[in-house]
Amino acid sequence: MEWISFLEKWIWLGFAAVGFAVLFNVPIRTLWVIFLLGALGGSLKFLTMKLGGGIILGSFFGAMLVGFLSIYAAHFRHAPPFVFAIPSVIPMVPGAFAYRMMLGIIRLTGDVDPSVYETLMHETVNNGLKALFVLMALSLGVSAPMLLFRRESAKEIKVIKIEELIKK
């Protein structure tokens, strides 16, 4: 039963990524790759969170997977890797945390009594920090392959082709 719900999540994650891809007007040939990357990255995030890794570590692993796969995708669909990577990680962007922080800040300007103020402050700071750290994890994860291989362009990174693997 758990696997079915996991598979279902997979599909919704893919659609969320494709929705943003269409909004960003990506080339059509990259759409299904973005579906796959978004779904895989999101699943890894949920898996990490289920194993108790927390949302920040989960986002980092998910984004890293997307980052590495986007290098492969760039070689084989001929577009810069970030065209694949950005729409795929956007569903992981902590939008809910960011606007909750903003709502909290707006509410903090009102006249609230000290006990309410304390919980409100706690929530606002917590949401803001989570948003910041998840974002850091995402951008670090996406640029991880470039940072590790120390190249300026994905074209200079050698990718082992699947056919060559089979030949070996």
């Binding site: 909004l23 950005i86 990680v89 956007i90 939008g95 951008s139």
Partner: peptide
């Protein structure tokens, strides 16, 4: 209902520029 508005590109680009 408002998640489609989230500034994903500015925020991710911001962090990667800082990096």
């Amino acid at each position: 209902s408002v998640l489609y508005l989230i500034p994903g590109i500015p925020l991710i680009n911001s962090l990667s520029d800082l990096l």
